[in-house]
């Protein structure tokens, strides 16, 4: 197996990050992130209450940008996150269905 360079991270569930790291990477304060946890938009890793899947970095950076661009409050940002999650899931499902379907000879 090729070792991952020390300064490189997968931004998916293969890696976990702390709340402080999430805050720095996404430009959202720790207090606001705690509010997102309260709203159920941000969930810690199973068995690790202080660690979060690194995939949240990508999602929260998008949410952070939209929050600034549209001057949204943190509750609306939490709703956005849920919809972004759903879009991601559906895109994944669509890609998976397309990959598994026969494309020729039909």
């Amino acid at each position: 197996m090729h070792p991952m360079p020390p300064d490189m991270n997968w931004l998916d569930s293969r890696e976990a990050v702390s709340l402080v790291e999430l805050s720095t990477a996404c430009g959202i304060s720790s207090d606001d992130l705690v509010e997102l946890i309260d709203y159920g938009a941000l969930t810690p890793m199973p068995m690790q209450s202080e660690r979060f899947s690194a995939h949240y970095i990508v999602q929260l950076r998008t949410v952070s940008r939209l929050r600034v661009d549209f001057d949204l409050d943190i509750f609306t940002a939490a709703l956005f996150m849920k919809y972004l999650d759903r879009i991601e899931e559906l895109e994944e499902e669509l890609r998976s269905l397309k990959a598994r379907s026969i494309t020729t000879g039909q």
Partner: peptide, 30 residues
């Protein structure tokens, strides 16, 4: 880019963004 990427993969390269000012950390590359 290490082996192991899937479609739509995101990677972060720490410290490969713009230089920090007055001793601040460098940014990251996404």
């Amino acid at each position: 880019i290490p082996p192991g990427v899937a479609q739509g993969q995101k990677l972060r390269l720490r410290g490969k963004g713009a230089k920090g000012h007055n001793g601040g950390e460098n940014g990251d590359l996404y």
